[in-house]
């Protein structure tokens, strides 16, 4: 069995099993740096001192971890988190992002503590000459006052 076939078997075994992450508390300074790194120039996104400052809507859904970061044992040799792409921990497979669908349902504010519910919902074999796996992960981002965003993210595993 090839590594990606092992990944497929493992991934199929965890379909519809949710896990939860705490992304910590949103800091205005981090959100502003995110906006600057993304090429934004509006002070409403880049200057936490601006009276109309808002957290960039894609900031929280782009976070792979919160401000606390991760320990050395949480990384794969390729630099990805071991638990980021279901079924791939410890396997010599190539990982790529396939795209995202983001639906905003609330405004993220500085000071929000963000929780994420992640669940693998689909595993597909794709490609003919060079087959690969397409994994679909659905994520729900919430703060105390309710749901902020729903995301469907796809990962390519070769």
């Amino acid at each position: 069995m090839s590594a990606w076939e092992v990944a497929e078997e493992r991934a199929r075994a965890v379909i519809d099993r949710p896990d939860h992450r705490d992304l910590g508390v949103v800091r205005a300074e981090d959100a502003a740096e995110f906006a600057r790194a993304a090429g934004e120039t509006s002070p409403r996104l880049t200057d936490p001192g601006h009276p109309g400052f808002t957290v960039h809507p894609l900031y929280v859904v782009s976070l792979l971890r919160g401000a606390g970061g991760a320990g050395p044992c949480e990384f794969r040799p390729d630099g990805m988190y071991r638990d980021e792409v279901p079924g791939t921990d410890g396997l010599d497979v190539r990982l790529m992002a396939g795209g995202q669908e983001v639906r905003f349902t609330g405004e993220v504010r500085a000071g929000d503590r963000i929780a994420v519910r992640r669940v693998l919902t689909d595993v597909e074999r794709k490609g003919s000459g060079a087959p690969f796996l397409l994994l679909t992960v659905e994520k729900t981002y919430s703060a105390e006052r309710g749901t902020l965003a729903r995301v469907r993210e796809r990962f390519i595993v070769r």
Binding site: D30, F34, L64, D78
Partner: peptide
């Protein structure tokens, strides 16, 4: 910068 602020070390 973008990788640092999103904690993406890939």
């Amino acid at each position: 910068r973008f990788g640092a602020v999103t904690r993406n070390a890939h």
